[in-house]
């Protein structure tokens, strides 16, 4: 199935979890995740299954004003 990760299209196996995708993109900690504008706490990354068309955001700390 196709999902969007940080606005880039990715082909991932059906029933992939957030953790599966994080491994696939080699996400570097620290990070946090949102799916379709909804924050998903890290305690749910192993169980949350993605669906076709989901938009996943993986964000990290940067400088800010």
């Amino acid at each position: 199935m196709r999902i969007m990760v940080n606005q880039v299209a990715k082909e991932v196996p059906d029933n992939s979890t957030i953790d599966d995708v994080l491994v696939m993109i080699d996400a570097q900690p620290p990070f946090a995740v949102a799916i379709n504008y909804e924050f998903v706490p890290k305690t749910r990354h192993a169980e949350e299954v993605l669906r076709e068309g989901d938009e996943m955001e993986v964000i990290s700390p940067v400088t800010g004003g």
Binding site: I25, I59, V62, G64
Partner: peptide, 12 residues
């Protein structure tokens, strides 16, 4: 102050 941006971009 700090912020958050998408991982894997030139910013992060």
């Amino acid at each position: 102050t700090v912020s958050l941006r998408r991982q894997g971009t030139s910013t992060t």
